[in-house]
């Protein structure tokens, strides 16, 4: 593995290979919770937070699994740990901020099944990142996710009041915007490299 600067890891995860727009990870919340800026912000924050936790867990777990010689348990243990962590976070939010809980609604349990989180854990393992690199990678991925979500939310909020043709309303338009955003993020290619 070539060593990369932390800065590059961050830029790469957030802009160049944006999790949503380049890797298609976390599309469900991207389509579902990008209607309102406030919700998008909260969701982005929640995902970033969970990513951070998942990244740390995955790093530790991976080291442990390699130590005991059972790398085939990678997937199962990752998902179990992440699922439990998310459930803990969910309980915590429900207790601390019922309003936030209502706003995120059904998507909080879905963070568990958010590909972005598991994807992050798998990718960082595959890339062989160290502890610090993993954390930066998680932060970058979270920032990229939040950015994509926020851009989409801003546009969708404006387009709520548009004469969009009825067949293109909703998911279709969101996907079109996602495509255009994905194209514009191509401008970052080669940045920092």
């Amino acid at each position: 593995m070539k060593t990369e600067s932390l800065w590059y890891i961050f830029i790469n995860a957030s802009l160049i290979n944006n999790f949503v727009l380049a890797y298609f990870l976390g599309i469900c919340p991207f389509l579902g919770v990008s209607g309102k800026k406030e919700t998008a912000m909260k969701m982005g924050g929640a995902v970033t937070f969970v990513m951070l936790i998942a990244s740390i867990c995955a790093y530790g777990l991976n080291a442990l699994l390699i130590a005991i010689g059972a790398p085939f348990l990678q997937l199962i243990s990752f998902i179990v740990v992440i699922a439990s962590t998310v459930q803990l976070v969910e309980m915590f939010i429900k207790k601390m901020s019922p309003a936030l809980f209502r706003a995120l609604g059904i998507f909080l349990p879905l963070i568990t099944t958010n590909c972005a989180i598991l994807g992050l854990a798998l990718f960082q393992t595959n890339l062989g990142y160290g502890f610090l690199e993993s954390i930066i990678y998680a932060l970058g991925a979270g920032a990229g996710f939040t950015l994509a979500l926020l851009l989409m939310a801003g546009l969708r909020e404006r387009l709520d009041f548009a004469d969009t043709p009825s067949v293109a309303k909703g998911t279709v338009l969101t996907l079109f915007i996602a495509g255009i955003l994905s194209l514009s993020f191509m401008g970052f290619a080669g940045l920092g490299g």
Binding site: D163, P165, A168, I177
Partner: peptide
């Protein structure tokens, strides 16, 4: 079609 009409025509083409 994609840049203008899908968004709702003139005035709504966000890009």
């Amino acid at each position: 079609a994609l840049g203008k009409f899908a968004f709702g025509g003139l005035g709504y083409n966000a890009f």
